[in-house]
Amino acid sequence: SPPSSPVALPPFFMRGSIIQLADGELKRVEDLKTEDFIQSAEISSELKIDSSTVERIDNGQSPNAVVIQFSVGELKAQVCVEVLLEYPFFVFGQGWSSCCPDRTTQLFELSCAKLCVGDVCVSLTLRGLR
C-alpha cells in the first residue's frame, strides 16, 4: 500500500524530554537504552516489541521526506513509512538513528547515528493482533 503523508516530528524527541517507562521509571529521551524498550514491552499487556529491518530508503514526495521500507517481525511483513529526514528511530544496540543525523541534532539536540539499510529498529505491535 502507498505510504501516508510524512509524519511531523513530535516534541518528545527534543533532548531533555522526560519519558516514563512501563515500570514508572523516568528517563530523559537521550538516555534511553535498548533494554528500556525491551523491559517496558515485557511488562506491557498490550504491546509487543518487534524488530524492523530497514530494507530500502528512498526519496519521499517532498525534498525533506524519505520513504523507509521495513521488514517487520518474524513474518517479515513489508511496511512503508514516509517520514521527515530528521525523524529518529531507535536501532537495537545502537540507539537513536535518522536519515539525516546532523539535522536531528540541529533541531532537537538529540545525538543520532546515520540510519542505514540493514539497521534493525525497535518497533511495536499489538499483542493478540488478529
Binding site: F12, F13, L32, D36, S40, S44, L47, V72, V81, L124
Partner: peptide
C-alpha cells in the same frame, strides 16, 4: 501568584512508530 509549571511526561511507547503489519488474509 505563579502557578508551578508542570513538565510533560511522555509514555515510552510514544517514541516507537507503530509498525503493526496489516493482516491481509
Amino acid at each position: 501568584n505563579v502557578e508551578p509549571r508542570s513538565v510533560p511526561v511522555f509514555p515510552w511507547h510514544s517514541l516507537v512508530p507503530f509498525l503493526a503489519p496489516t493482516q491481509s488474509d
